[in-house]
Amino acid sequence: MPDFPEWLEVILRSLILMVVLFTITKILGSKQLSQMNVFEYVTGVVLGGIVAIHTFDPNSHIIYAIIAMLIWFFVPYAVQKIALKSKVFRNFTYGKSTVFIQDGKIMEDNLKKQGYSTDDLLEKLRDKDVFLATDVEFAVLEPDGTLNVLPKRENRPLTAKDLGIKLAPQKEPQTVIMDGKVLYESLANLNLNLAWLETELEKLNVSIENVFLGQADTDGQLYVDLFDDTIAVPSPNEKPLLLATMKKCQADLELFALATENPQSKTLYQTNSKKLQAAIDKIEKYLN
């Protein structure tokens, strides 16, 4: 293209190839470099190379660059799609995971097959905060080179399930105020509206403009952080207060039952005290 100054052509080529490259990478999906398998890694490098060569060389045909890029796009794309369908194909292209430790015993053969020395294994285990190999029940090397570790039952972190504590399900809280502005969409996600928000803020005695960040949970409790850090904001206390009142009433009824001499009243207080206890048991997990 002789009527073009060459520098202009370089600019044009750069822009065109940039658009093509970014579109392709977008379609192929974005993964962190460390999470890529060999296939994706090679594809990325080659695509980058093609673009790099053809951007600043005015003698090469840009159409060649685009053809090459399309091939390097379509083949990996097809591989991706087939791998989604076929387990055998996936094992071939993406690799399989290897069990390193099973039932607390290290599989020396698998270690050797993957080219891992004992030091490598110990290093990977330390990465997962395991310093004693016998603490591990099961460990598996994923195709991308990370080691996932299942510690033995007694070495796992204690959970509410282990302690037999019942917890209410909790959904994600929504951010309803950001930098003093109301986010209507997240309010709608909680089935709440501006009127509710204004009432809640009035209860806290602050105005929307003063709120740096406001979040609401699924039970409709509002937590706010103000621009002015010298003002103290009360945290929601409706639920703890309710639980405390219920417990107090229950205790009161028990006291009445002990104090009265009338047998009829005594049974009345006792049944009601029991009912209250049942109600407390029912909702206590939702109030914590």
Binding site: T218, D219, M246, Y286
Partner: peptide, 17 residues
């Protein structure tokens, strides 16, 4: 207590609670 429970029941999003 009854009134507070009513409020909480109305505000709760989760069917179980």
């Amino acid at each position: 207590i009854e009134a507070t429970l009513q409020i909480l029941a109305n505000k709760a999003q989760d069917v179980d609670s």
